[in-house]
């Protein structure tokens, strides 16, 4: 590899050797970005006993894995992880660094960006490479960091014209996970780690881990509710519909904030992005942040009493009416036709 080859890095998040889905999704996207740059995709992996995982990144096109492997790094801890990552960025100057928009990614990325004084954009819903003219200066091959912003009726394209390293976080499900038919012939480069007392200023003394039972990304049918459901009691009817037709229940940011549903079930820019066979949007107005997380669904049904709700602009079947009257009728019709 030439010294001047532009590098696209993905921070690989893992729990006991199992990679986070979002990291594999970002490798898939990073591969495309690297192709556009005529550069190279590389993975950064920090933890312990990760040879197998390092090899797995080759299936997603990583040509090189920078691997910091040490017993003291087995679990994510802000200070040592951010120190390693910052030093690597300083030394290798990748053009792009991508992090998952997870608890870990959102803890780590800003620290690394601050240390390296890099631009960082949170929760991007699209990433592209393009030549840009900004304030009458031409910049070649910048990373376009695209995200809905402010109030929901705009899509902002953010650039870091003068930042040697461009960083972004992306939520789970936004990018598609696309393994290669044949893994690339990648190399593993060990990154030395020497523990320091400063790395232990915050110590993990207990950890409670439970795999989420909710997997919205894998659900073929999703029944989602918004703030328009009115209250928690009304929201429960969505569970009934989901149970009958065999789906999962999800909610919008507004429904989560109102306490109708748990955050792990949030669909949208700051939640998870889904592409089910069928998405039933109930009492959802359709803010861009929500649409970003569901508009690629195969079929979308929208139920809303406001005929002008933006959700009707992305749906395939629109029902204008009171959710609390429509849903029971839909449940009855389904039972009658298919049971």
């Amino acid at each position: 590899m030439n010294e001047n080859t532009q590098k696209v890095w993905v921070f690989i998040e893992q729990h006991e050797g199992v990679p986070a889905d979002v990291s594999l999704e970002l490798l898939s996207k990073g591969r495309k970005l690297a192709e556009s740059l005529n550069g190279e995709l590389q993975a950064v992996l920090i933890g312990h006993d990760l040879q197998a995982l390092a090899a797995e990144t080759f299936r997603y096109g990583a040509r090189e894995v920078l691997l910091a492997d040490h017993p003291q790094l087995a679990h994510y801890n802000t200070l040592p992880y951010s120190r390693i990552m910052s030093e690597l960025v300083d030394r290798h100057q990748p053009r792009i660094v991508l992090f998952g928009g997870t608890f870990i990614g959102r803890d780590l990325a800003p620290r690394v960006a601050s240390h390296t004084r890099s631009g960082l954009t949170a929760d991007c819903t699209d990433l592209q490479i393009a030549d840009v003219t900004y304030l009458r200066k031409d910049y070649s091959q910048l990373l376009l960091q695209i995200r809905p912003a402010f109030g929901g009726n705009i899509i902002a394209t953010i650039i870091c014209p003068d930042s040697p390293v461009q960083m972004a976080t992306v939520r789970e499900g936004v990018m598609e996970k696309i393994p290669l038919a044949q893994p690339v012939d990648g190399r593993i480069t060990p990154v030395p780690y020497s523990p320091s007392a400063a790395d232990q200023l915050v110590r993990i003394i207990a950890r409670h881990h439970e795999e989420s039972k909710v997997n919205l990304k894998a659900a073929p049918i999703i029944v989602a509710g918004g703030y328009g459901m009115g209250n928690w009691q009304n929201f429960q009817i969505l569970y009934e519909l989901a149970r009958v037709i065999g789906g999962e229940v999800a909610g919008t940011r507004a429904a989560v904030d109102a306490g109708f549903i748990d955050q792990v079930r949030q669909v949208g820019q700051t939640g998870v992005t889904v592409r089910p066979k069928l998405y039933i949007a109930c009492g959802i107005s359709g803010a861009i942040q929500h649409r970003a997380g569901m508009c690629d669904s195969n079929k979308i049904i929208a139920v809303n009493d406001d005929p002008d709700a933006p959700i009707f602009g992305v749906c395939h079947y629109g029902i204008v009416g009171d959710v609390m009257e429509v849903i029971p009728k839909l449940i009855d019709a389904y039972k009658h036709k298919l049971k």
């Binding site: 004084r117 890099s118 631009g119 960082l120 954009t121 840009v132 900004y134 376009l144 960091q145 809905p148 912003a149 929901g152 009726n153 705009i154 899509i155 902002a156 394209t157 953010i158 650039i159 870091c160 014209p161 003068d162 930042s163 861009i288 929208a302 933006p310 009707f312 602009g313 992305v314 749906c315 395939h316 079947y317 629109g318």
Partner: peptide, 17 residues
């Protein structure tokens, strides 16, 4: 370091639903 390059209003097309 981050600059807003472009802002697009989201205009929903005529609904084909």
């Amino acid at each position: 370091p981050t600059k807003v390059h472009k802002i697009e209003s989201v205009v929903l097309g005529g609904s084909a639903h």
